[in-house]
């Protein structure tokens, strides 16, 4: 099974294999370096970075749920300047693709981060996390409205020629409308999905369990939601899709490819088993063989209407 070509491409970004680490679950790279051979990964999406440091939410910041995990980290990060100085050099030397997840409270804040990243050659792709509250719009997230999603995408597009991925929120009635809007505004790819809004109640304290009150659900519980979004977005836009949500096995990856994704990301599964991504990469050749294909590319979109 060795020697199987697992290469895929997300637009202009070529990956050694379809498996990347999801933003926010893999730090800035060094945290897992003792346990994971980073150079084997298709890529690493760094934790979201903002123009200035963000403090994040009060604890508790995570709460386990049935087949899932709620988090309200609140996008704590040291800001783009510290990121570029202290964290990016490690990622640049990790021997894998570097995706920088970008966050902001206003269009201008997203632009400031992307402008600063222009000076860095190590960035292979920019991933806009549009699930941030837009403070000019009363805290509604950018990703909730096609107009604002397009506005931030177009503004960033105007200042960078780097591959630009936009990460979709599932917390909207029609994610495919947001995907269309960002594709028209110049996105090179979309990532789907970010976490699903949820809440837990702490019986003992008789209060919402998370310090941030509500939080984002991830893990196996959201895989069906993510597959549905990928499948729908794949029919609405021509740009590539990075699938994400609850992936734990090579079979999960195959399902996302069939639904229309060109590559995937793994988040929460790394917490229980830090070797998940490497295990998936090891298992993929056999999984592809069982499915009667020789490369992951052949699976992309196989489940879509008209392809059956």
């Amino acid at each position: 099974m060795k020697g199987v070509n697992l290469e895929v491409a997300v637009g202009a970004v070529r990956l050694a294999n379809p498996v990347m680490a999801a933003s926010g679950t893999f730090g800035f790279g060094p945290e897992y370096a003792d346990l994971v051979n980073l150079s084997r990964l298709g890529g690493i999406a760094a934790k979201g970075v903002s123009p200035d440091p963000w403090p994040g939410n009060p604890p508790p910041r995570v709460w386990e749920t049935e087949s899932g995990l709620l988090n309200s980290i609140g996008l704590q990060n040291p800001g783009v300047e510290v990121f570029c100085r202290e964290d990016l050099p490690f990622l640049a030397a990790a021997g894998t693709r570097v995706v920088v997840n970008v966050i902001g409270h206003t269009v201008d804040e997203y632009c400031r981060v992307v402008e600063r990243l222009e000076a860095e050659s190590a960035v292979d792709a920019i991933e806009l996390n549009i699930s941030c509250p837009n403070i000019k719009e009363g805290g509604l997230t950018f990703g909730q409205d096609p107009i604002h999603a397009a506005e931030v995408t177009a503004a960033v597009r105007a200042i960078t020629r780097r591959p630009l991925w936009v990460k979709l929120s599932p917390n909207v009635a029609e994610p495919e409308r947001i995907a269309e809007a960002v594709a028209t505004a110049g996105a090179d790819a979309v990532t789907a999905i970010n976490t699903v809004l949820g809440m837990a109640i702490d019986l003992k304290r008789r209060r919402p369990a998370l310090g941030g009150l509500s939080g984002g659900l991830s893990g196996p519980a959201i895989k069906p939601i993510a597959l549905r979004v990928v499948y729908q977005v794949a029919q609405a836009v021509d740009i590539p899709i990075v699938g994400i949500g609850g992936i734990r096995t090579a079979e999960d990856v195959a399902e996302f490819l069939m639904a229309g994704a060109s590559a995937v990301m793994v988040g929460t599964a790394t917490f229980a088993d830090p070797t998940t991504m490497e295990r998936i990469i090891d298992d993929l050749p056999e999984c592809l063989e069982r499915l009667g294909v020789t490369t992951p590319i052949e699976l992309i979109g196989q489940a879509l209407p008209g392809r059956l």
Binding site: T25, G27, K47, G56, R61, V62, N71, Q76
Partner: peptide, 10 residues
């Protein structure tokens, strides 16, 4: 979450 310093949960 992770126990490894990566997720900023704790």
């Amino acid at each position: 979450g992770c126990g490894m310093g990566a997720c900023l949960a704790c």
